[in-house]
Simulated scan of single mutants.
Amino acid sequence: MGQSNVKLEGIYPILATPFTATGEVDESSLRELVKFQLHAKVDGIALFGMASEMYTLLDDEKARIAEIVVDEVKGQVPLVFGSGHTGLEVAVQLSKRAEQAGADALMVLPPYMAKPDGKRLYDYFAAIAKAVDIPIMIQDAPLASGVNMPAALLARLSKDFENIAYVKVEAPPTTLKVTEVLEQSEGRLTVFGGMNGLYFYEELGRGAVGTMPACEFPEVCVAIYQAFKSGDVETARRTFYQYLPFMRIGTLPGYAMSIHKEVLRMGGVIESAYVRNPNAPIDERIRQEALDTLKDLDLLALRWNEVKALRV
């Protein structure tokens, strides 16, 4: 069971789901990926987000992934499980299961197939909040879900349900929405950024407490966050803008998942960059474009084989 009193802040990468070259869940790569995150000193790990290709995973695969990650993390950092669904009943059931499987908090997308009106949205999040004891993070990601959630609705939910305590703001421009959510919720809601860290530096300046990016550059986000937190805003700013082109290419529609995985594969974090349909596999041109953004920069993922060799 998760801890209901956990306080989330800092860097919570969305764990990719490594597959074998034939498309099965690759358990040993998954364990290595978790070791990589912990080595990078992440503050927590998120499972079953968009960047986990969660919409392609079978129920028993999800259960096994959760088991492996819980076993590998051993309580060192909190775990946030994505548990949203296109319908209320399934979302409630997934949320209860996640809590039982060891989630410390939930990240919940709104229903995204039939677009809900305000009342349906409220009822959906209310039902989940009543069903679990752990904190809930509402994922405000209209580009992915097609559902816009007004700050006033988020504020009302946080007022009515104590465990609705977080929002992951991915509604562009995220900076303005961060300010709006913090002001309207009168401090009840804590805000994380998303969108692969594209506005992370500005979000921190507006009161966000962390970000939940893809998982191939955790140490970069940790460095930005730690510098900002310690008052060295200049280092935070400089580091952010150095890596921004790399973050941007990691949001390429259709190819984002295979870009994240190819970087992890190249340095030996995972074995294969296989992605499941409807994601498209990386091609040589995109691979080169991604690597171009890293010229003169140091990325832990690309030298993981050396780090691994020292660990043995």
Score class of each variant (00 low, 15 high):
residue 207 G to H: 00
residue 192 F to S: 13
residue 143 L to C: 10
residue 208 A to R: 03
residue 163 N to P: 00
residue 167 V to I: 10
residue 147 V to R: 11
residue 240 F to V: 09
residue 209 V to L: 00
residue 146 G to K: 04
residue 168 K to R: 10
residue 199 Y to H: 13
residue 211 T to I: 05
residue 151 A to C: 01
residue 168 K to N: 08
residue 154 L to Q: 10
residue 186 E to S: 13
residue 152 A to D: 13
residue 223 A to S: 15
residue 190 T to D: 02
residue 234 E to G: 12
residue 219 E to Y: 02
residue 183 E to D: 11
residue 227 A to T: 11
residue 238 R to T: 15
residue 180 E to I: 00
residue 229 K to C: 09
residue 200 F to M: 05
residue 234 E to A: 15
residue 213 P to W: 00
residue 149 M to I: 15
residue 154 L to E: 10
residue 141 A to H: 09
residue 190 T to S: 06
residue 182 L to A: 06
residue 207 G to N: 00
residue 210 G to N: 03
residue 137 M to D: 09
residue 219 E to R: 09
residue 188 R to M: 09
residue 208 A to T: 00
residue 164 I to N: 03
residue 148 N to M: 07
residue 237 R to C: 14
residue 217 F to E: 08
residue 213 P to K: 02
residue 137 M to E: 09
residue 171 A to T: 10
residue 195 M to F: 11
residue 199 Y to A: 14
residue 124 Y to I: 05
residue 239 T to H: 00
residue 170 E to S: 12
residue 179 T to W: 06
residue 151 A to D: 06
residue 191 V to W: 02
residue 165 A to N: 04
residue 185 S to E: 11
residue 174 T to Q: 14
residue 167 V to M: 03
residue 140 D to S: 07
residue 235 T to M: 10
residue 205 G to Y: 02
residue 194 G to K: 01
residue 217 F to I: 01
residue 196 N to E: 14
residue 231 G to P: 08
residue 146 G to Y: 02
residue 218 P to S: 08
residue 219 E to I: 06
residue 152 A to G: 12
residue 214 A to V: 07
residue 191 V to S: 01
residue 182 L to H: 00
residue 174 T to D: 08
residue 225 Y to D: 12
residue 219 E to G: 05
residue 174 T to Y: 04
residue 186 E to M: 06
residue 130 K to Y: 03
residue 141 A to F: 13
residue 123 D to H: 13
residue 182 L to I: 08
residue 206 R to P: 06
residue 136 I to N: 04
residue 128 I to W: 08
residue 232 D to R: 06
residue 231 G to R: 02
residue 172 P to I: 03
residue 226 Q to G: 09
residue 216 E to G: 01
residue 142 P to L: 01
residue 134 I to V: 08
residue 230 S to A: 12
residue 138 I to C: 04
residue 128 I to R: 13
residue 196 N to I: 08
residue 223 A to D: 15
residue 197 G to S: 02
residue 161 F to A: 05
residue 184 Q to M: 14
residue 231 G to V: 07
residue 163 N to C: 00
residue 198 L to D: 05
residue 157 L to P: 00
residue 170 E to H: 05
residue 172 P to V: 07
residue 225 Y to R: 03
residue 151 A to T: 03
residue 237 R to A: 12
residue 240 F to Q: 08
residue 190 T to A: 01
residue 190 T to C: 02
residue 240 F to D: 11
residue 222 V to A: 02
residue 129 A to T: 12
residue 218 P to W: 08
residue 238 R to A: 15
residue 167 V to R: 07
residue 202 E to R: 15
residue 215 C to K: 06
residue 166 Y to F: 06
residue 181 V to M: 03
residue 138 I to A: 11
residue 129 A to D: 13
residue 161 F to K: 07
residue 179 T to D: 14
residue 135 P to T: 09
residue 150 P to T: 03
residue 184 Q to H: 06
residue 201 Y to P: 09
residue 148 N to L: 10
residue 156 R to K: 15
residue 169 V to P: 00
residue 131 A to M: 05
residue 180 E to D: 14
residue 207 G to Q: 04
residue 180 E to K: 12
residue 202 E to D: 15
residue 176 L to Q: 13
residue 201 Y to N: 14
residue 163 N to W: 01
residue 194 G to D: 01
residue 140 D to M: 05
residue 203 E to N: 13
residue 205 G to Q: 10
residue 207 G to R: 01
residue 159 K to W: 11
residue 217 F to S: 15
residue 216 E to Q: 13
residue 238 R to V: 15
residue 179 T to A: 15
residue 126 A to Y: 09
residue 227 A to N: 11
